[in-house]
């Protein structure tokens, strides 16, 4: 029998051998039967309890961060959808001037960019952060503070990025018009 790394991995994957030396016979001990001492659940609740009010800004638990994340990504979905409606109104009939050309250009650049970068990728990542620990029965993701950081960076950066459409820094379709002189 060959024991290359691939074979070892396959054997381990199919549960024939142990990967780390852990004795699989120990799995037979579960579910255990002896009653658990009182107060364990209360202690878990206390340790995992979350701050409330303004303290919510400091939470790192995936239940909250995942939910914030999904909600934020959905917000950008709605905002980019409104831009799409604007474009469709402009195109409802030929030669309309509901949106002037450079505004239209900004709208479609923003619609595409926001849908891709602020909605689609963050949304699937958000659903992952929300569901994965539960699906894997872990208490949280391995780096809770990193996911909090990733969310807030995305949210703050995304809002500023979107707001740029209102304050004249908006990204234009490349080269469509030259209005500002540089520096």
């Amino acid at each position: 029998m060959s024991t290359g790394p691939l074979d070892r991995a396959r054997n381990a994957m199919e549960g024939r051998t142990s990967e780390t030396g852990f004795d699989h016979e120990l799995y037979r001990l579960f579910p255990t039967h002896r009653p658990r001492p009182e107060g364990e659940v209360e202690e878990l609740e206390k340790i995992w309890d979350n701050p409330t009010g303004w303290g919510l800004l400091t939470v790192v638990n995936n239940n909250y961060i995942g939910f914030f994340y999904v909600a934020a990504a959905f917000l950008f979905f709605l905002l980019a959808g409104i831009l799409a409606l604007g474009m469709r109104v402009q195109l409802a009939a030929p030669l309309q001037d509901f949106l002037p050309p450079d505004t239209y250009n900004r709208f479609f650049t923003m619609h595409g960019t926001v849908m891709m970068f602020l909605f689609a990728v963050p949304m699937v990542e958000a659903i992952g952060i929300m569901l994965l620990p539960q699906m894997l029965a872990a208490r949280d993701l391995p780096f809770p503070r990193l996911s909090a950081y990733a969310f807030w960076a995305y949210f703050v950066g995304g809002l500023c990025f979107f707001a740029s459409i209102f304050v004249g820094w908006r990204p234009m379709a490349a080269g469509s018009c030259i209005r500002h002189s540089h520096r």
Partner: peptide, 29 residues
């Protein structure tokens, strides 16, 4: 000219850093 394009570039670059942070989290998780 102008800062529009810079804004797009840095904005997107920044958001991608956040996506990568999430990806590392998910791989290890």
């Amino acid at each position: 000219p102008g800062i529009n394009t810079d804004f797009w570039l840095l904005g997107i670059g920044f958001i991608e850093i956040s996506a990568i942070a999430g990806a590392i989290e998910i791989i290890v998780g």
